[in-house]
Design a protein around this nucleic acid. Sequence first.
DNA 1: ACCCTCGTAGTCAAACTTGACTAGCAGCTC
DNA 2: GAGCTGCTAGTCAAGTTTGACTACGAGGGT
Lengths: 213, 213
Amino acid sequence: MSAIRLLVLGAVRMHGRAHGYQVRNDLEYWGAHEWSNAKPGSIYHALKQMAKQGLLLAHETAPSTAGGPPRTEYEVTEAGLDEYRALLRDAIRSYDRNMDVLSAAVGFIVDLPREEAVALLKERIEGIREWRDAVTEYYTPEEGPESLGHIGEIMNLWVHSADSGAEWTRGLIARIEGGAYTFAGEGDPFVGVLAEGEENPYATGVPDPGDND
Amino acid sequence: MSAIRLLVLGAVRMHGRAHGYQVRNDLEYWGAHEWSNAKPGSIYHALKQMAKQGLLLAHETAPSTAGGPPRTEYEVTEAGLDEYRALLRDAIRSYDRNMDVLSAAVGFIVDLPREEAVALLKERIEGIREWRDAVTEYYTPEEGPESLGHIGEIMNLWVHSADSGAEWTRGLIARIEGGAYTFAGEGDPFVGVLAEGEENPYATGVPDPGDND
DNA sequence: ACCCTCGTAGTCAAACTTGACTAGCAGCTC
DNA sequence: GAGCTGCTAGTCAAGTTTGACTACGAGGGT
């Protein structure tokens, strides 16, 4: 599963009501185009698809107030909210070798109660441990790891990266348990969206982090 | 770019001439279905697509010798070999936040001369360093990193993972420079494909590494 | 008045991916 | 010798992703 649905649902929800271009701008503001497949086509596709599936409610709105073609505004439905929370919990809990889903989830993690966030992150660590054990066993033939030749380096890479992921997760748990950030029900939430008309401070004029996909 | 083209080209090349099912088996043998999108549909699609583009030559072959429908065998063309080498070099050299392309490339790295492998890996480290610098600067606003709130954790995750990737790369360079593995032009290469009729020792009966994508 | 550029908002075809499905043959059992 | 299972080999429709493209209007210059 890609991160696009979680990102789009989360962005629309933070606005209450948003059109595609606004979502697109938020995601750029968050740098999501750097670490996920948040491109215009994907965003508009996800909006339409989720509207068709009843996760979003589409309002055909009047022509833009700021030039350009008319735009459609979306709102998250009850079902959409359920889906959002399910995706969010799942993204935090389960170890996926692609970091985009996790990155998106970290962006929304404060939407959960602090205790739940910590619990999910601990589940994550446990999942990494299980995955690591299974992989090392799977890739350790009877004749010893040498019989794999350089292929063993692939396993080495995964295990290295799993360990690194676990370490980062432990660090995050420590910071959250230490009182960092403002979680659900703890007062004014951190606002990470661009208001109508507000300009994106990261949009341009900044050295490009070298997109070498 | 996904890893599928590199994987398929590499697998066909190792056989000299292979049909889709053979490629599919090799990729399972390598565990590629665990860490890349190497599913039947993708493999057959890639084969057809690359045949259409002249990277592979398709032979319409007689019905299978072992039951089942007739099969098409493929061979890598000159252009396909160029493409293979370009993909391989690029995958080793450039830092991509998805590990599947790199994993595939590690599987084929011994296809290059030892010196070139090391040189490409050093380029990779340099690329990681540049990417890291750009990202940390991009995500360090004037008001200090605290103004990002929990969003800063996303950057933290990337940087952590970049550092881990660099560390793994340095380790691999050290092992290669220390004489590990057999590279191009150094004698009998390591053979990592299944011959016709050979059974896949990892195919079944092994604990599944828990696919929680 | 006219043109040019820039930002806004979104569409589209082509390519790729996914997961379920089909169909043929071998060997076994009953 | 009929039916069943399991392996071989691949197809297909539905969904997703990509990157290039379109169209509209504001504002500035001339």
